[in-house]
Design a protein around this nucleic acid. Structure first.
Lengths: 175, 175
DNA sequence: AAGGAAGTGACAGTGACTGACACCAACTAC
DNA sequence: GTAGTTGGTGTCAGTCACTGTCACTTCCTT
């Protein structure tokens, strides 16, 4: 979508607050009205990989072996999504800079990851995990993955999966 | 503040989307402009206990005994804040209903609790806890407290602190 | 009494977002 | 082939969240 690219450019060039949706639309060669037919609001342009991510991760939970404990299911979901992260790397980096500079976008980012966590919880409960346990597992998994992910983008050398395992041990050590 | 009460009433009566900031101001007996001198935006009226909460919790971490491990510090912070939760109970309940019915407010709520987590992380690192460990502990603590808090509002019978301990064991069992 | 700080009202302006209607392609049915 | 349907778009008008600016009051200080 050209709107996405246009927004990415403009937000990077002059900042989120200083760009109007009308400008984004203009750079993409369409009308402001058309912009709002594709994205719900000014922020949403930067957050539409989410749906695919959610599907991949919930599918990973749904199709995992029966023997796995809840937290492993969650971690499995995250590692199943690593191809998406790797593929989206170049865009994700530009995006991250913009979000880091814009409180309104950070808010949306938190909402998205909260929604993702809810989706994982729902995938777990559909497999029979009781809801309170599912909540705890999903949030623990998110914490573990965030920790691993930070280490990953920091060094960018190691394998993500092994970093996840390592972070799990760290969490275990904390409890 | 009368603006807070006015907003609470109007959001409950006709819903968040269907009330204007102008109406809130009018019910409080002031101008819309005055509303925006007190609150940054239409959502913020419902979220200003946050500052006090953050101070109490970070102070609890800063003033705890030296021997406590990171996760205990975080849980200590949450239990230190329970008087605030108890005191704010009646308002919190009305507030919760409104937030549950309004995606925009849920977004803000997530942002607030993320900001709180960041504050706890910072309080931990100021005590010498390395940042990655602090992040993990803060997020684990948040997960534990959420679980305990849900059980608390559900039954409303038991002591919150013991529910926190119980939730900690649940998390330990998951790892 | 003079002056400064803090809170407010009035007013004008920008920009995000919505609803309604018309237009134009491409594809389907008959 | 023509009619109708579907999906994407432009246009226009309108609402409302939010901001900058100026003037005014009140209260507190010196």
């Amino acid at each position: 979508m050209r709107l996405r690219e246009a927004a990415l450019e403009l937000y990077a060039e002059r900042g989120y607050d200083a760009t109007t949706t009308s400008e984004i639309a203009a750079r993409a060669g369409v009308t402001e009205r058309t912009y709002f037919r594709h994205f719900a609001d000014k922020r949403e342009v930067l957050f539409d990989g989410e749906a695919e991510l959610r599907e991949v991760m919930t599918a990973a939970i749904a199709s995992a072996e029966d023997s796995l404990p809840p937290l492993s299911l969650v971690l499995r979901a995250y590692t199943a999504a690593t191809p998406l992260f790797v593929a989206g790397r170049p865009v994700a980096e530009r995006r991250a800079r913009i979000i880091a500079a814009t409180p309104a976008l950070q808010e949306r980012a938190h909402a998205k990851s909260a929604a993702l966590t809810e989706a994982l919880i729902s995938a777990l409960t559909q497999r029979g995990v009781p809801e309170p346990t599912a909540r705890l597992a999903a949030r623990a998994g998110a914490a573990i993955f965030e920790r691993a992910s930070r280490a990953w983008t920091g060094t960018s050398a190691q394998d993500l999966t092994s970093l996840v395992v390592q972070a799990s041990h760290e969490l275990r050590a904390l409890t």
